[in-house]
């Protein structure tokens, strides 16, 4: 691994100031599962530099907290461990979709290291991007190797182009389905935005998967209290039963009364460069009585814009099945 300087930050603001001070040469370090992996593999290019400085977020007090206030909702510090989210009793009871998603992340060892902020900010799993020998488009080269190469697993069927990554996070689809907000801290000011608008696709920004400025960090994710009768479900498909990213995943959160969906949010993971909000599918679900036929229609709507690549047409069917099942599961009273 390339050698680097590690600086302990004492507050989110100080972390942002340090990033500002070493602009372009520094990266925030959370669990390290992804960042150190990229550094060990020396993944770099014209548009992606390996950092000389790592700003340690673990030294910031209380950034790993998980708190809940009835009526106001849940707050997850950026450094909250994925395993803590998975095990948290309140989350299991009141935000089960989030606990389900957390339980699907990587392996137990990695969940013990991985953080909420790190999970949301991880880099894509495209194996061309992650190959040190190939100067792919996303690293600043001129070719997307996946377009005519092997795109069977971790490439887009929706919103792809000019780069065809998919967003790998399990937490993001669940948190967006829960209508979460994310608080970002810069050296001088902070801002809070819907988590959904935190992510961008590769047409908006080829080199970065979110709107974080180089001197900003994620401080906190806040999840509003779900309305009465709100239910959620997260389903993920992968090759092995553990330690695999999603081939596709589906997050459904909906309010139900008398078997009828009053409101819902539907997000797909592993299919697009960003967690994919399926608004047409939501429209197809709202006001409907949940049954097999409606669930199928919802799935069809969600994937109707799909443009699979040469080897991943199966992911359309996969995502439809997952979404259909998630709708039926969430709708089960």
């Amino acid at each position: 691994m390339k050698s680097f300087q590690l600086i302990d930050a004492r507050s989110p603001q100080e972390a942002a100031s340090l990033l500002n001070k070493y602009k372009g040469k520094a990266q925030p370090l959370a669990g390290g599962g992804d960042l150190l992996y990229l550094m060990k593999d020396r993944i770099e290019g014209r548009q992606i530099q390996m950092p000389d400085v790592l700003v340690n977020l673990e030294s910031i007090p209380k950034l790993d907290s998980i708190s809940y206030e009835k009526g106001k909702g849940l707050k997850l510090g950026a450094m909250a461990l994925v395993s803590d989210v998975e095990a948290n009793k309140t989350i299991r009871e009141r935000f089960p979709i989030l606990a389900q998603a957390a339980a699907e992340v990587a392996s137990p060892q990695l969940r013990n290291m991985g953080t909420v902020g790190g999970n949301l900010c991880q880099k894509p799993r495209c194996w061309y991007y992650r190959n040190a020998h190939l100067p792919c488009l996303k690293k600043g080269g001129s070719t997307c190797y996946a377009l005519e190469g092997d795109n069977r697993y971790y490439h887009a069927i929706l919103e792809g182009g000019p780069c065809y990554i998919v967003h790998p996070s399990d937490l993001a689809p669940a948190l967006i389905a829960l209508n979460s907000q994310v608080a970002l801290v810069g050296p001088k000011q902070s801002r809070t935005i819907p988590l959904e608008s935190f992510f961008v696709n590769t047409k908006q920004n080829l080199y970065q998967e979110n709107v974080l400025k180089p001197d900003e960090i994620v401080q906190e994710v806040s999840v509003p209290e779900p309305k009465e009768g709100s239910r959620g479900f997260y389903l993920k498909s992968r090759i092995r039963k553990s330690w695999d990213f999603a081939l596709a995943s589906a997050a459904v959160q909906m309010e139900i009364a008398g078997g009828v969906c009053r409101d819902c949010r539907i997000v797909l993971g592993g299919v697009a460069p960003l967690p994919y909000r399926a608004k047409d599918a939501e429209t197809a679900l709202k006001g409907k009585k949940i049954n097999e036929q409606v669930a199928l229609k919802v799935a069809e709507e969600a994937l109707k814009a799909a443009q699979p690549m040469s080897m991943n047409a199966y992911k359309v069917d996969l995502a439809k099945t997952l979404l259909k099942r998630a709708v039926l599961q969430a709708g089960k009273v």
């Binding site: 799993r125 194996w127 061309y128 190959n131 190939l134 190797y145 190469g149 553990s242």
Partner: peptide
């Protein structure tokens, strides 16, 4: 082994993407 047939580069030369069974499998 998943290899790009254009350049002979193995795309999953790591224990994460080369899918050995886990204890759950």
């Amino acid at each position: 082994r998943i290899m790009d047939s254009r350049n002979g580069i193995q795309l999953n030369a790591n224990l994460h993407e080369y899918g050995m069974p886990t204890s759950l499998d």
